[in-house]
Design a protein around this nucleic acid. Structure first.
Lengths: 226, 226
DNA sequence: ACCTGAACACCGTTCAAGT
DNA sequence: ACCTGAACACCGTTCAAGT
């Protein structure tokens, strides 16, 4: 039953056959080791001892490969909810996990912003978010908008942080300088508050603030429709 | 006093000297005519009858050129506030204008997400947003977070819409198919709500919803400090 | 001093040709 | 049928050499 490898092949130690999963595996290894900026079709193909053209037999394009990778990363998250842990706590923990996962894989947040990670695990993530928001008493339409928004924000925050990191600290100090040197005549409000406002707070903190504020807004009894 | 051009030059009709502003002008012309995907150092240099290396005398890199362009685009917005128009209406109108401006220049929203548009007009935009939120009774720290968040969301929404557009309608129908075919066993909440939730609503509508919800959340009297 | 031709070190994707 | 070498059509950035 076992497929026999021709004995005559002895140049390389059993180069494995290409498969979709094998390609994703190789891509994941590169992502973990070198980050998303090294994640090119040519590099992935190279890791599999072939040329880039071969990948196109299994993967539509580079964007699809990113989507597959992101779905696999989401698979590594704990998406369970026991129904006992308060939904607010669970939401915070889930977004903290999600953000940390993206931050751990430098550069992957950027494609995640533009790609629908078309796979089963992304749907798992949406499912648990909708369950938590529903448990919180958020009506379906608002829950959909909030889910969308919270994921977009968490992803964008990591992506922004990533690209700041790759440009170095100089970028951040430019920002501080600009804000601190705001002309009090032209920009009185900004000048009065200075750089303190925008620099303070990690992206985890800002995510947490958004979760609470959005929930308060959605659940506010005084909410005017519009 | 006027600088004299040598008469002997007759091959080209007065190739203008390179300047930082001239480079931004040329880049803007390309952006308007062909969108941001055509906005490369080589294309901009070509429009100015020179090689890409020449641009680096005036511009640090491609990212900086994007930032200059975005600041110039923001300059085209009406950022005034008469103090008479209700702040809520003014906020809605401002974000509608901002989104429309980004959407009108295909592909520019993406760099705008990752670049601090280091220029005077971006500071004008932040200033008027802070003024409006302050007028709404939002405390400084929350106003800073809200400003940051609303700009990020508006930009990300257009960027997402842009990249969906460039991938074609097929992308959207993939999404609808995935959501509609959610396994009711594994994804009961998603299956029950179907695709209706995520597809409905333009990005203008979603922006408007976020503005109102965030304001409600920030201004909610029951707000627990979290 | 200011400018730039040419090169360096890459990309994603396609397709004709191989096995 | 499955796979891929080689090419196509590009990138951003650098630097030695020119004026």
């Amino acid at each position: 039953m076992a497929r026999q490898t021709p004995v005559s092949r002895r140049e390389r130690p059993a180069k494995p056959a290409l498969t979709r999963d094998g390609i994703v595996d190789a891509a994941m290894a590169i992502l973990v080791a070198e980050g998303a900026q090294a994640l090119t079709m040519r590099r992935v193909a190279g890791a599999l001892d072939t040329g880039p053209a071969s990948l196109y037999v299994y993967v539509r394009n580079a964007t699809e490969l990113s989507a597959l990778l992101i779905d696999r990363l989401i698979a590594s998250l704990d998406l369970s909810w026991d129904g006992v842990e308060p939904w607010r706590d669970r939401l915070h923990r889930l977004f903290a996990d999600y953000s940390a996962m993206l931050a751990d894989h430098s550069g992957i947040a950027r494609p995640a912003l533009f790609v629908w990670p078309d796979g089963p695990h992304y749907l798992d993530l949406i499912e648990v978010l909708m369950r938590l928001l529903t448990a919180a008493g958020v009506p379906p339409e608002a829950a959909g908008r909030a889910t969308d928004l919270l994921l977009q924000h968490a992803t964008a925050a990591v992506a922004e942080w990533d690209s700041r990191r790759e440009r170095g600290e100089q970028d951040l100090s430019d920002l501080v300088t600009t804000l601190d040197s705001a002309d009090p005549e032209r920009h009185p409000t900004v000048a009065a508050l200075g750089s303190a406002l925008f620099v303070r707070g990690s992206h985890e903190e800002r995510s947490a603030w958004l979760i609470d504020t959005l929930l308060d807004g959605v659940l506010a009894p005084t909410r005017s429709s519009g």
